[in-house]
Nucleic acid binder design. Structure first.
Lengths: 246, 246
DNA sequence: TGTAACCTGTGGTCAGACCACACAAGAAAG
DNA sequence: CTTTCTTGTGTGGTCTGACCACAGGTTACA
């Protein structure tokens, strides 16, 4: 069929993918041991390991040494880690511009809060509430604050129930985490900025609970682009087609 | 520092990432040969290869055998392939629900066409035009049609200039490509559906060129969710909180 | 001068070995 | 009989060494 002989590790990757699609493998299942997999597919164990490493980084499997039910390679399908690694490295390698990452956050988070605000069903925002309360209850260092900030934004995505958007947002966030942290040092007054950010968080949550979709979207928009404008890191302006990409 | 000794392949991954962040590596540069990398980092060559395999799948490097300037591992930073692999496998492993993928497409593509429509600068849509013309010029098989359909949607993302959204869309699209193809077989009349899809494409493009952001967003929304509703694959309803996720 | 043969460095792959680890089954002690 | 310890076994993690295919450059030859 194909004149090009597939590379050995690709054979393994394809076999696993086919097993997943055909239902022979499901989340929670164990992959065969590496040595068995190698023998079954007619490739070397190192090739199997290369494929498993890819699956691990992509968040499809988790590996553990030892023996027993918890050992071996297990299908987990946690997209967050893989998305983070991918976006972090692409930003590092200049495949992704930071400005584009911020703009994508605006799009995704804006539609998330708008959907949450206009959602008909019961929506659980207690997790977001708790994170906000934790942020406000005591003074935090910049790193602690940013960690909770990440959790807050992520909790909104999780409340929407969309796993794709949640994972993508987690990836985007982690990709520019270093920039956000570095930018905090450029601020004129960290206490002033953090106080403002907390107020904006409250405003976002209030708009969602009040069912004001447009207000929530605008609040998120101002929140995100405001911080990045203040830290001089990305010109995430509101609607203008930014020239930074080109 | 860390009581947990990092795994060997992660040492390599971290080293490459640090080199990227510090500017010691840039797109177009060669990575050191595997054997050199192994010796420099004090790990075995197989561990280096596992890391390089990850970087390759993630779209960060391209490898070639032989000698000369084109051989070896070269930084390329092409996010598309990695994003596609990640999303395809996550859908296969049920980490991503197809309904969520479709909903994310709605969000991203909706905001893309809205931004294109309201864009102040000159926007080049000739590529999208040409693809549409190619689709309309002759009868196509389902596979050919879907391939051009993918190209059309992707060309819009590329016109927006946002590399993150473009790559994400490419990944989402490829993740459900199999479902789209399988769904085409369930249609009552493929010629009728394809004709409708082409008309909708024209409508989207017209709305963009006319500067009607909301109309373009609605047209894209109807276009995408309509096809998936028709193929009974995903209940990508307009605004209702879908219960399919849980 | 042109061509052909050779050499070198690269990734691709495999085989084998050893280690650390976690669990299970059996043996030993109470 | 119960508890505790020892041993065995299977797993991933890693390294080493070897060989191959390939692409380019280099050299020798016509």
């Amino acid at each position: 069929m194909t004149a090009i002989p597939a590379r050995a590790w690709q054979v393994v990757l394809d076999a696993v993918e086919r097993d997943l699609l055909d239902g022979r493998l499901s989340p929670g299942d164990h992959l065969p041991p590496e040595r068995t997999l190698a023998a079954d597919l007619g490739v070397g164990r190192s090739s199997v390991r290369e494929a498993l490493r890819v699956l691990e980084v992509l968040g499809l499997i988790r590996t553990a040494v030892g023996s027993g039910p918890s050992a071996g390679a297990i299908i987990v399908a946690r997209p967050g880690g893989g998305m983070s690694a991918l976006m972090r490295l692409q930003v590092a390698a200049q495949g992704f511009a930071v400005a584009d990452v911020v703009k994508t956050r605006l799009v995704l988070e804006g539609s998330i809060v708008a959907e949450l605000a206009s959602g008909t069903g019961v929506i659980d925002l207690t997790a977001s509430e708790q994170i906000l309360t934790a942020m406000e209850s005591q003074p935090l260092t910049e790193a602690e604050f940013l960690a909770l900030d990440t959790q807050f934004h992520l909790s909104l995505a999780q409340a929407s129930g969309n796993q794709v958007i949640t994972a993508t947002m987690a990836g985007l966030r982690s990709a520019i985490e270093g920039y956000a942290r570095a930018g905090a040092a450029h601020l004129a007054s960290w206490p002033a900025t953090s106080a403002r950010l907390m107020l904006e968080h409250r405003g976002i949550l209030t708009a969602i609970l009040a069912g004001q979709a447009d207000a929530a979207r605008l609040a998120v928009h101002a929140h995100i682009s405001g911080y990045y404008a203040e830290t001089h890191l990305a010109s995430a302006s509101t609607t203008t087609a930014s020239p930074t990409t080109r």
